[in-house]
Design a protein around this nucleic acid. Structure first.
Lengths: 168, 168
DNA sequence: TTAAACTTTCAATAATTACTGAAAATAAAA
DNA sequence: TTTTATTTTCAGTAATTATTGAAAGTTTAA
């Protein structure tokens, strides 16, 4: 396969994966471009590569900065801002997981916790079923949350040597 | 908190979590209703609970059946179909992970694998950066994929007693 | 068989989400 | 200063995704 085609296919694949997991396609594509770029890129470089508007490029670059998946890089003697991606994939995964946990999972956990305690006739089948499910979910999500935290705070080698020894 | 309010809030929360992770809000809400229901529900029950159309209810129930997150249940002497959710949360998680892995992760893995081998000048910085990133991603996604497979094929107690012993 | 009960499909439409482009804001250089 | 380069914002619009509702299809019972 030729480089240009491979690049196109990677950008497309990364974008598709993004949308499937609730991440804006363009944001994922900008990330893809920066992941494989050997040099810092400017907003204009990105606009051109993806054929998108300045506004769109700017917004998605901003989001990627907030997720700390990319960094600003200033080139001496140049007024433009350039961007580079965090290239260590473990670090990338760690940051994505940390962010999504904080934004999406923790609020759910807080709510589940509240929903376990409801008023009403405890002999009612409906209320029993509800309370039992809230208990299960709270416990499950809590455990997952904790495990994922532990996992992402370990480094690659430690994690996998242990995990494989354990579960193989 | 009162039961009706708690129920409303759970359905809403589950739907929101769904959309954030790329799952149709209504599908997640139908799932929520069935998760907390003590009795099998018909399409009409679901339509009424969520104020949605028959077509919408039917489509989302069908999808949930395909994910095997819910089952058909036939009530003797009744022509309608009723539905119940898989209530074991570990089993639910296992099925969701298995399905998403199959549908979304494995295709990406196949593509990354191909993209590692591209033609062209191997001394080019661009091509080196690309190839190196494809290698990292392929290895990372592959490892994650394998770990998750191992994890979801273990049962709750085994997994957690081991995991906590290991990583604490 | 025919009719009634129920389920599925899908074209039209609505709702949501993302994008554009130009104007406003900001920052650096002259 | 003033000018020029660059970034940000956001109202209007486009694209995507989800929903409706009625017609067609299917199944069961009379």
């Amino acid at each position: 396969m030729e480089f240009t085609e491979a690049k196109r296919q990677f950008i497309q694949t990364w974008g598709k994966l993004g949308t499937e997991w609730g991440i804006n396609r363009t944001m994922a594509q900008v990330h893809a471009i920066l992941l494989i770029s050997s040099a810092p890129l400017s907003t204009e470089d990105i606009m051109e590569e993806l054929s998108i508007s300045r506004g769109n490029a700017n917004m998605n670059i901003r989001d990627l900065l907030n997720w700390t998946l990319i960094y600003k890089e200033l080139v001496p003697g140049d007024r433009k801002e350039y961007f580079v991606a965090e290239k260590d994939i473990w670090e990338v995964a760690r940051r994505i997981i940390r962010e999504r946990k904080k934004r999406e999972v923790e609020p759910v956990l807080r709510i589940l916790h509240q929903l376990k305690e409801i008023d009403g006739d405890t002999s009612s089948k409906e209320i029993q079923a509800f309370t039992s499910m809230m208990g299960q979910l709270d416990s499950f999500v809590g455990k997952m949350d904790k495990s994922v935290s532990l996992l992402i705070n370990e480094n690659e080698n430690k994690l996998f040597s242990l995990l494989f020894k354990l579960l193989k």
